[in-house]
Every structure is written in C-alpha cells, then in structure tokens.
Design a protein around this nucleic acid. Structure first.
Length: 359
DNA sequence: TCTGGGGTCCTAGGACCC
DNA sequence: TCTGGGGTCCTAGGACCC
C-alpha cells in the first residue's frame, strides 16, 4: 500500500493507506518509490539532534514528528515564533526540506496547529484564539478522534469541537465513561499531558511482526513456517534491545478480514525465536474454526522486562540464538537461519521501529 | 478493487486470593 | 438460600496513531 503520497499525487486522490494498484489506476503516471527504513531512521536521528538545540524537553512522536516543550527556552531565541523560524531554517539548510510547526499552549493544540498549514507551515494558536478556532472545527481534526469516535459523537449530534465543548460533561461521562471526560476536555482545547523527554526513555511494552501472505492460504505448513519466521524476527529484536517477554500472542486475519488474537502468559521470560515459536504454535489450536483461508499472521511478545546480564550457563535455546546473533551481526541479517526458512519470505527488509527511540 | 506493518492505550469479564 | 469488598493477573477485542 501507499505509505505516503507526495503533494503532487494528492490531487489525484492518492493518500496513505491506499492499495498501490488503486493508486496507479487513478494516476497511471505516478512515480512509486520503495521505502527505505534505514534512511528514515538515520534522518529521524539527525532531526532529533537539531530539535535538541532548542530544548531538552523533547519527545519523538513518530518518524517525522516531535513535541518540543520550549516553555523555559523560547526566550533564548526571541520567543516561540522566532524559535520556530530558526528551527525551520535549520532543517531547510541541513536537509533541503520544508517542515510544518505548530505553536500552542499544549500538545493537542500544537499538533492541530502543525496540521493546519502544510507542507511549509508556521501556525500559532494563542490561548485567546483557542475557542475561535475550535468552535467550527470538525472533531475529527483532533489527534485522538478517529473514524469510530467521530461516528459515536455524530450520533449524539456532535459535529464540531464547539459542539463537543458545549455538550454537558456529566452526560458525556455517563454515556462514555472515562473517555467521555477526556473527549470533553479535548473539545475545549484542554490537554495537560506533559512532553515526555527522551532521556526518561519509555520502556518498550511489546514487540511484534506481522505479514500479509502473497496469497491467502489454508496450508498448516505454510502458516507454521510463517510463524517461525515471525518468531525469529521478534526474538532477534528482543535480544538486540536486551528484552525478554512473558506473554506470546498470535494474530490471524482471515480472507474476510475477520481478525482474532490468542495469547498466553508463560512461566518464565523468553527471547529466543525457538521458544516464541513453540508457544505460538500451541496457540494456533485455539482459534475458532473458519471456512476462510488465512490472509495475515502476526507474532507478538509483550510483558517485557529488561534482561539482566546473562548467566554463564545458557540453555541450549539461548546458545543457538546467541550463535546466530554473532554471525548475523557480522555478516548481515538472516545470513544464518533455520533451514526451514531458507526460502525467504517477503517482508524481511523491515527495520525495527524502535530503533529511533534508542537515541 | 479491496484494505501494510508496528506500536500504545483502554475496556470488560473472569479466575483467584485474602 | 445466598453469599461483600478489594486486589492482581489474564485474555480478547477495539480505537487510535504513524
């Protein structure tokens, strides 16, 4: 599918998430470029380096977005606006790229402001302007309100943030529980979530890999091989970042797109592909029977703990994994792999999304 | 014509324990 | 015949973000 569409392609209706075939149908001359995760991670890291010149209260939000709390530093740059201009200039000089900056009293509004003028924007939402901007703004524009929430709110007669803010909070809470309270706050532009600085290093909570098969299948041996591949990938990343996990989960998506997850927590903590695979395989028996062939499989490990230095005595599984890591560190990913995985699967190019966070 | 991959957070029900 | 309150852990599903 399309991961990102250039501004030239967008007028044709091409946007992120659209199947490639469909994109090429609406715009046969579109130029397609395969993703290059290593390049993105490298650029992300360099970007964070630039951001850190302006504040240390810096949170990476995605591969190309970050929150900067400049409450205590903006005066050094002549105020938020001048800071933003210098930030933009710095990025343009370094990468030849434009970027969009939003300035506001909190994260919710800053994100909104940054989305208001793209691709080369600088929008400031002052506290006194908040209501004027929100009143007619569709709720969907807020980060955190997606398609489903939009529908639920629409059913209550709420279309705009103005409607949301004016809707009685206690009624919204009764109807939607805790979510109702948060939504009401969002409707009035309130958000007290702090910017979580990178040096606090949020621990990873789960690691997973998934793959949509080139063709839907009913063959147990294909699914099994796939699970093994995914388990090995997850295990490799766990070990790279020195995590071990307690809960193993398998997700199956059938051709009709119905998606099921089965998970189990095991006695100890695991980080080897073999162990993850054997748990994953045992989970396969728990899925509801379906007439549909399988379209997608995923393996996830959660309930992670940071692994303490290994003891001298390693279980056989661990010795295998360790040997594999040593070879693959030196000669490249998947140089050494199980014989059953010699025929490669698609999707082996994936770079760990956590890589940027480690910086 | 279908709909990728990798995460986080929340909810709700049930088991189990004191 | 009916049976409280509080806690943790586990599982399944779903919303949302990029």
């Amino acid at each position: 599918v399309v991961a990102a569409a250039s501004y030239e392609a967008r007028p044709f209706g091409i946007k992120a998430g659209m199947p490639l075939r469909q994109a090429l149908r609406v715009c046969p001359n579109a130029i397609t470029i395969e993703g290059n995760p290593r390049k993105y991670v490298d650029t992300t890291i360099r970007l964070l380096g630039i951001f850190s010149r302006f504040t240390d209260l810096l949170e990476a939000f995605s591969v190309d977005e970050a929150f900067l709390d400049v409450t205590h530093t903006h005066h050094l740059w002549g105020g938020p606006r001048k800071l933003a201009l210098q930030l933009k200039e710095h990025i343009r000089d370094t990468f030849g790229l434009t970027c969009s900056v939003g300035i506001a009293p909190n994260r919710l509004l800053a994100k909104l402001a940054s989305d208001m003028q793209k691709p080369d924007g600088l929008v400031e939402i002052a506290p006194e302007d908040v209501w004027g901007i929100l009143e007619k703004l569709p709720v969907r524009k807020l980060c955190g309100i997606g398609e489903q929430t939009e529908k639920v709110l629409a059913a209550l007669g709420i279309q705009t943030c103005g409607d949301l803010g004016k809707f009685p909070e206690d009624r919204l809470s009764r109807l939607l529980g805790r979510v109702g309270r948060v939504l009401h706050q969002m409707g009035t532009g309130q958000d007290d979530t702090p910017v979580h600085p990178y040096f606090h290093e949020l621990p990873t909570k789960s690691m997973s890999h998934m793959i949509t098969l080139p063709e839907d299948t009913r063959a147990p041996e294909i699914m099994s091989r796939c699970l093994l591949q995914l388990a090995e990938q997850v295990g490799r990343r766990l070990r790279l970042e020195r995590y071990r996990g307690k809960t193993v989960a398998v997700t199956l998506r059938y051709a009709d797109f119905k998606t099921y997850i089965r998970q189990k927590s095991i006695g100890g903590f695991v980080d080897s592909g073999g162990e993850i695979f054997s748990q994953a395989r045992s989970l396969m028996t728990r899925f509801p029977p379906s007439a549909q062939p399988v379209r997608m499989l995923a393996v996830a490990v959660s309930q992670l703990i940071k692994a303490i230095e290994q003891m001298n005595v390693l279980a056989e599984e661990d010795r295998h994994a360790k040997a594999q890591d040593v070879v693959n560190d030196r000669f490249g990913e998947f140089t050494l792999r199980r014989a059953s995985l010699l025929i490669p699967f698609p999707g082996q190019k994936i770079v760990a999304p956590g890589t940027a966070r480690k910086l």
